[in-house]
Write a protein that binds this DNA or RNA. Structure first.
Lengths: 340, 340
DNA sequence: CTGAAAGCGCTAACAT
DNA sequence: ATGTTAGCGCTTTCAG
């Protein structure tokens, strides 16, 4: 196909007894038509079930009504079906429904920089890029082509780029740290990923600041995202070797699950001896025993905000950006101690 | 945007010193050009980084290099982010990567029948529809527009429609039932959903046949997909009231988790008194305690097969269809009894 | 206020 | 073997 079957603007024009220009203007609210003809044309078009062909419309440098979605973090993982990594799948679902609510289609484009690029790639009205990396080639490509884009999480190394939305990572980090401190934690370790994205960087920064303000030594560990649960299990050994902290804050759910598993395997009680928190909720945090407290992100709010910004960008108006959403801490067994 | 920035066929033609037709033909392997010019044109085009504009190409009734994906089951649930329903999200991920591997983009189109329809909707080369219902309006719409489509799971009530792929539901059902029988189950209840799709229907049919062949009474329960875990918990009461079976086979993971929870709440031991199996693996089956044995579908294999069929359909060649994939039973604690 | 006409970039008849 | 040309359906000047 790729072609609309039926009714064209010509058909409507003929039936309404006007020119195709009139139809185009009436339906797009342009030009100078009398209210009467405008109304008449609209009625005829409705009656005929006319819908402008997106391709032809796009040809005339208008818009496609479609935006692309690039899941950078999954590109980095090199796997579009990592077990239990549901943050991105949730985001896809949320973005799709938010896009529909705005009359936009959502096109999944796994990796723009790997050839061959799918044909429609550069015809999209704009792009959402999740968790761009430092010096992200996808970002560079879109910049070069002049295609508008927004990022989920700010683009690292580009402090002036305002078109992003995200949960407030610094606030999220403090939320977790305060929660742990309220439950008696005096020494908290942070386990971040190795991807150079804002998610990792901002949490680390907030953690360092929080520790400094309390004169608490920072204990920072890095663990590759793709190391998964197994990497967490191994890391637990290193953590205990460095001296048992009161709590471990892992930015990913699978690392948290692994670290907890590793701790328990060493006979350490969670939450009694060590508390564990995950920075992003996932099946791993929910399914672990004890269940792991975790930050719940706001994919619906974030993707909605991103689409708002992107639509403004496409329309050429100045968007309110960046937009910040809030994560919530879902308390579970791994931090179930009496506060105070 | 919606418009490619730079290089058009014209530019290539001028630079190569030929007509635009020559370029078009050279690049599409059509017409009658000398091997020399063909080669020359290709080189020039490559050098200039030319890529045909998908829109303009689409206009000439060619193809878009993009297929749509409609997730019917989620439409029915009325919610694109149901907790723990990851079958479809996994399918989306698998389909996206399979599409990319074939040079196709994948467009998510939540519901074709609800207005307003996103503009690009009818410009797609074809569609994948997951789990179509009986008399599905989306199917009817695509038929009417003459847009090719394939279905994940056969279209109920349309036995002659061959363009589908799916795990072998009947085989899956027998796999589960044999597994349970091998562990001593003499009375097995089936809990199916209420959606009129092949998934539910075929499992039920295979179940009935299996029971009949063994002279075992069939105990069939229906539970709405959207009733979720809570519905399963409630159903457990009805099941026990009808007399405790040796095993319960729930087609969805959330129903299985609910039923198991309900049984345990009544003091019934799983798997010792009753075994529980889920027909589709999900977070609920993995996260429950005891963990629930479940069928693992093959989203990569299925979506790959669907795209093969769809591509053939689009190209106008006769595809090998339908294509059957196999589900595997993932044994977990809920059926951990000694076989025999 | 309204409409004729020129393209957008491409493909495919139809010349040459 | 190569080029000319007519559109695909739409938007948008620019004349009436």
């Amino acid at each position: 196909m790729a072609r609309t079957q039926g009714i064209t603007i010509k058909d409507v024009a003929r039936r309404a007894g006007v020119s195709i220009t009139a139809v185009s203007h009436a339906l797009n609210g342009k030009g100078t038509l009398s209210a009467a003809t405008r109304e008449h044309i609209r009625e005829v078009a409705d009656e005929m079930g006319y819908a402008a062909d997106a391709l032809a419309r796009g040809m005339r440098s208008s818009t496609m009504g479609a935006v692309g979605l690039v899941l950078r973090s999954l590109d980095a993982l090199g796997d579009y079906k990592p077990e239990g990594v549901d943050v991105f799948e949730k985001f896809v679902g949320a973005a799709a429904s938010q896009a529909l609510a705005r009359g936009l289609s959502l096109m999944l484009v796994p990796d723009l920089t790997r050839a061959p690029v799918p044909p429609l790639t550069f015809s999209m009205d704009g792009y959402i890029i999740t968790n761009p990396h430092r010096d992200d080639p996808v970002v560079a490509l879109l910049d070069k082509r002049g295609i508008p884009y927004v990022t989920y999480g700010r683009a690292p190394g580009r402090p002036d780029f305002p078109y992003w939305a995200s949960e407030d990572d610094a606030a999220s980090a403090r939320l977790v740290l305060d929660h742990l401190a309220a439950r008696g934690a005096r020494s908290i370790a942070l386990v971040r990923g190795t991807d150079a994205n804002a998610w990792n960087d901002e949490h680390e920064e907030a953690y360092a600041a929080w520790c400094a303000a309390r004169n608490m030594p920072a204990r920072l560990y890095e663990l590759a995202e793709r190391a998964g649960v197994g990497g967490g299990v191994d890391l637990a050994r290193r953590i205990t070797a460095d001296g048992l902290p009161d709590a471990v804050f892992c930015l990913t759910g699978r690392h948290a699950a692994g670290v907890q598993e590793g701790l328990i395997a060493q006979g350490i009680a969670v939450p009694d001896q060590v508390m564990v928190v995950a920075g992003s909720d996932s099946e791993h945090s929910r399914g672990a025993r004890p269940t792991i407290s975790a930050l719940e992100l706001d994919p619906v709010g974030s993707s909605g905000a991103l689409l708002d910004i992107l639509q403004a960008l496409i329309a050429g108006t100045e968007p309110a950006a960046p937009r910040i959403t809030q994560a919530h801490l879902r308390e579970r067994e791994s931090t179930r101690r009496r506060p105070g």
